[in-house]
Write a protein that binds this DNA or RNA. Structure first.
Lengths: 210, 210, 210, 210
DNA sequence: AATGAATGAGCCTTCATTCAT
DNA sequence: CATGAATGAAGGCTCATTCAT
């Protein structure tokens, strides 16, 4: 229920949404610092001062963008985790959900990828750090469980693998094109193909063979 | 004996190298745009204007940093490619060399990772685009050869795998700590463990078994 | 209905005109380079950055000033040339129009006089070179015609005379005071007196003749 | 006897003279303010700081240049005035001497022409104001005498004519080329032709008279 | 005589933001 | 809702000058 709160300036109008989407695109393309408030206003065909009718500040635009995206993303993660699919299927579902997020909100993912590190230092964006921890916890659980259950290689360095997956997935936003030939799900599948055959425990084929 | 071109302002002094290294660290930490010339000067204990005794511009610092790093990196790549090790060993060597670059020049890699996209648009940094193409060509060759020779899975999507590897390797700069417990080579080994068992063609264990 | 091109920033407001006029005065008094943007802003009672709400740059102020002045000036020249008054009357009219320009726009003339040489080297001010050529062409025509028709001395060095007149007229801006006792037309008349007849007392030729 | 004085830093060396001449050229070409100390040093093939071995300041270079030039010029004027040649010959001699100064020291004249107005405001350059007064006095004398003796037109506006001559003569530095086809004396002659007799063709008075 | 490093002041410009209209 | 004018802080860069070596 976050429709109120301080500094909210009438969330909900469609003009606002347009402006926010414009800002997202620009932040993603040029970077948050390099995108000026006037760039956004220009893109919207208004004067820069007029933006302050809708938003309190440039920061609050980034905030809203990131908050919205992360809420949605973690919502889908939680659903998956709650479904109790077992390590391998869970991993697949989480990776797929992530690629779908890239597909649906490429700008927000790009902003998150590129700017989080710097934004995180501002008190206002403290939730980024929390979300990071949450994300790490989630993956740790999946991987640890998977190793324990024999779904993943026993010699897996869980921390390293977590980082590996995290970076690999999100960094795809740099080249993934929502309008391109490869769908998010197709990319996810390919990606999982590489990832799983690498970390999955090899079935003892000896026994199967004869 | 000064081989460099115009705008060189006495390359080679040790003070210069110090300043450049300071700049690299700051660019990496705060981002190129967010790092002010004053930040760099402050870190060096001089006034911002004094930096211009050594460098023509902030841009030229980034340029020099990137050029130096890329020259070194591609030098090592070329050595590897020239050695004719075969696809798998070549891949291992290139990945290892990359992690070693992260180990030796973390700041430069971070700058490259984060800023290249934006810098590339400036004529001065056109070489970044060229290097990118070179890099893609190199990986394409390794992967294509590997598939042809049966070293890698036959169903590999070469382009996607290239991106996968590229992003995965470089993004490690975000968390890799040169002074940490894990050496670059150890990381490379772990990384290759995941990567290769995923893309390597599976030996037909059936025949080996009996 | 805005006819101007890019970088125009709302030409036409009266505040703009005020600021431009202030800039003209200062450029004329202290010289273009020596006049700082802060000087202009101070004179206007605003902060230097606020000037950029109205103009793109210091250069564009000079540009606008010069363009406006030259357009007007050459407009009046063209009217005169079109009138077909004959060399002597044309010369008188052009000289008079020039002194009137000094009277009406002393600051702009001063800027033109003093800064054109340096400004001309910038691509943006290429039109200064064109205007120069136009001016030379105009005078060449007047003088050449005048000599041909017997209105001016047959032994006139046209090129030298052109320079002589050009410099003499414009340099008057250095001392001419629009609010002084001597009107522009009066100065023009005196000037034309010297130019056309010289300063030597005429010998009483009557007596010499027979 | 000005070989001593404050801030003199070893006047008299030939290196000094070279540097000063270089500075003169640059001041004349680019203007005093726009010429940087480094421009001068670059032209001399040394570092900017090294210039301060020879001169106290940029200002002192301009000072020395102007002082030297004006001393020489007024020296020649005084000789002429002392010769008692009569108004017309005196005028001719002064004009000729002036064109010869342009010929011999074009850079200094250009500096004087262009920069005096601004430099004059500095206490250090107070002598420029004095020289100006001296110059005005000199011309006033010549012209007034000439009118009185009947050598010049009785209706001459002396003040205006003084300005006219002053500006006309010095402004020639803008286009006069010491290495060109026209010698300074030739220009002076042409100039005096116009000044003394005007450019209008003389009516053949013979026929009109009887 | 000259270098090389630095200073300190100032320059043009940008930018997020404010606010009366 | 938006404009238009302005603020205030900062940013990259320049330049005359100093000084130890």
């Amino acid at each position: 229920m976050r429709e109120e709160g301080v500094n909210t300036k009438g969330r909900g109008s469609s003009r606002r949404a347009e402006l926010l989407s414009l800002a997202a695109k620009l932040f993603a393309e040029r970077g948050y610092v390099s995108t000026t408030v006037r760039d956004i206003a220009d893109a919207a065909g208004i004067l820069s001062g007029s933006l302050y009718h809708h938003f309190d500040s440039k920061e609050s635009m980034a905030d809203e963008l990131l908050t919205g995206f992360l809420d949605e993303l973690f919502g889908s993660y939680q659903e998956i985790m709650a479904a109790g699919l077992g390590p391998r299927k869970t991993l697949e579902a989480v990776v797929t959900a992530s690629f779908e997020a890239i597909d649906r909100r490429p700008a927000e993912v790009a902003i998150y990828q590129t700017e989080a590190k710097h934004l995180m230092q501002l008190p206002r964006f403290a939730y980024l750090t929390e979300r990071n921890a949450e994300f790490r916890g989630l993956w740790n659980a999946i991987l640890t469980d998977g190793v324990a259950e024999g779904a993943f290689r026993a010699d897996l360095d869980v921390e390293l693998t977590y980082r590996f997956i995290r970076d690999t997935v999100w960094v795809a936003v740099r080249w993934y094109n929502p309008d391109g030939a490869l769908s998010a799900d197709a990319v996810a599948e390919q990606y999982l193909g590489i990832l799983l055959e690498g970390i999955a425990a090899k079935r003892k084929r000896v026994r199967k063979d004869p």
